[in-house]
Design a protein around this nucleic acid. Sequence first.
DNA 1: TTGAAAGCGCTAACAC
DNA 2: GTGTTAGCGCTTTCAA
Lengths: 342, 342
Amino acid sequence: MRLVRKPKASVRLTDVAKMVGVSTATVSRALANPESVSPATRKTILDAVRKAGYTPNVAARNLRVRHTKMVLVVVSQISNVVFAGVLSGIDEELNLHGYGLIIGHLDNKPEREDHFIKMALSGAVDGVLLLSLRRLPQGHGLTMLDARLPMVTLNEKLEGANCPEVTVNDRQAVQQIVEHLYDLGHRRFAHIAGPDHNYTGLARRAGFLEALGHLGLDAAQMPIWQGHYSFEDGGVVGPQFMKLFPRPTAVFAANDEMAIGFIKYIQHHGLRVPQDVSVVGFDGIAYADYLNPTVTSVVQPCREIGRAAALMLVKQLRGEPAADVEIKAALKIGESSGPARA
Amino acid sequence: MRLVRKPKASVRLTDVAKMVGVSTATVSRALANPESVSPATRKTILDAVRKAGYTPNVAARNLRVRHTKMVLVVVSQISNVVFAGVLSGIDEELNLHGYGLIIGHLDNKPEREDHFIKMALSGAVDGVLLLSLRRLPQGHGLTMLDARLPMVTLNEKLEGANCPEVTVNDRQAVQQIVEHLYDLGHRRFAHIAGPDHNYTGLARRAGFLEALGHLGLDAAQMPIWQGHYSFEDGGVVGPQFMKLFPRPTAVFAANDEMAIGFIKYIQHHGLRVPQDVSVVGFDGIAYADYLNPTVTSVVQPCREIGRAAALMLVKQLRGEPAADVEIKAALKIGESSGPARA
DNA sequence: TTGAAAGCGCTAACAC
DNA sequence: GTGTTAGCGCTTTCAA
């Protein structure tokens, strides 16, 4: 059995040229650069194009012009609201500049990156945006760098790369939120950290430690549990928190989901938030405003982050210089943080 | 000023062939179909490929083989959790079959579809998945149908198309949830509907009306407000609800976000959920479980929906028949629904 | 302003 | 088992 040749009866440039009685070059020009063709022929050609329903074949075009007007976005988890927001911003900006979007979804499996490295190498895209949050390159085999494509990283450091990056001021933002808690009188803190193979997880933890240091508190005394940014983690940590004595009066979770899970757990076990314990998160997801209490957090302007990153990439694609960008996350005080108990 | 020719020093098939001293055909075969080449040459070639870091150029390949192993997914709003979950499932399944994913993000602007129609027409993808929730084709100009590509729709009817579809049993699911409320003694209902240019919005509203009919209630008596599936809509509807007399004892919102926004509003205005009014949603998003009260809803298995759709498309791509699939959403009783007040 | 023609990098007949 | 070769559909130089 052999594969049948696809009938693919689509109309080609040649067909249009024949219909009109001009060369393919002229049709191509009429489409790409209308002014370079006499008004009369232009009209005939454009009419024919419309009538025939001609659309240029991109594979042929890509092969010839050596670019694709496509960008690869490598993202660790697409169903995460923060990423989804960022993606939205990326798409919006890319769109403005005529680029399309190919999703390289890692689905939290970093090894999948290899596949996308190959994709980049294969010329399928003109540039790549890395939001994999990966802390370090694997160190073996090919890396994204080998694709020698314009690239920008988002909350991620790429070792050995000179590619521009957009970062969020996680560390300072965490400082702010910890200070907010400190100002409310809290002295005993705990932290529910994010994954440690993850750039933001690390940055937020470091920010936490740093903040305590600045405030003259002994960071070594403060419990830190590690989660994976999921709701459930908040509940997993709960029991450990409950048995602490003296209990911390303020808990900083590295993202809102964990904060929410944690609040749910401790409320369920008789603690009031914020009267008994204040808990704060990070990200500023919309849902946090609909909780009872609403959660104090640091809001990341996701869409803008995405747009900034996309714009930086586009600039590179154009051969323009692109400087690093740092986006500011802003403290947003909700009801989940209050004065420490006397 | 003219564009400089990109130096694009990437290694080509020809280069590898020269290095090894065989023809390009042999290299091509060694890569595509290793058994068709003698073990010795195979090894030499594969070694050379690795050493040279050769990756086939996809544009050239696509042009030659007339397919791209790419699928276009047209989605109305990527930063919506439900879509994000579905997308995740689509990606997972597609991946299994060697297909990549191009996102056609409408960003709630239906007119953007034109762009993606052109993309489909241009041979950039082998098939398309439609999750735009659009109720009807625009009726003018080109439509997706013109691309004559394998296609499957997800919660969307494409007029004049014979393409298979995956649907969710929204109507029955709504019936179940309304019956659940009825069984709790509720007789006065209200509905916060989704957008009416939207397949699911319509289906859920129809389901609501239908359910009331089956239960022998007068649907015409029940207030229906329309929202756009956002949190805020719940709050917008709130005041109108408050001034009703007698007030409905049960409210069905067409999605969880609106239900959550509504709950927040009425709680804030002194009503207790579910003691004073029961409110239920649709979708079963994870956040709903962390609210106080947790919200009764209908859970859609997003990832499975996505996988089913992707699989149907892959089957078509292989030339196999693909039958319509209906996915069942399941009632999930939370704390936001309770007995009607006496 | 237009046309002829080369060739982008690859695959798949077909011949050996 | 391997090589030769003809394109896939397009853009773009170069010449007219």
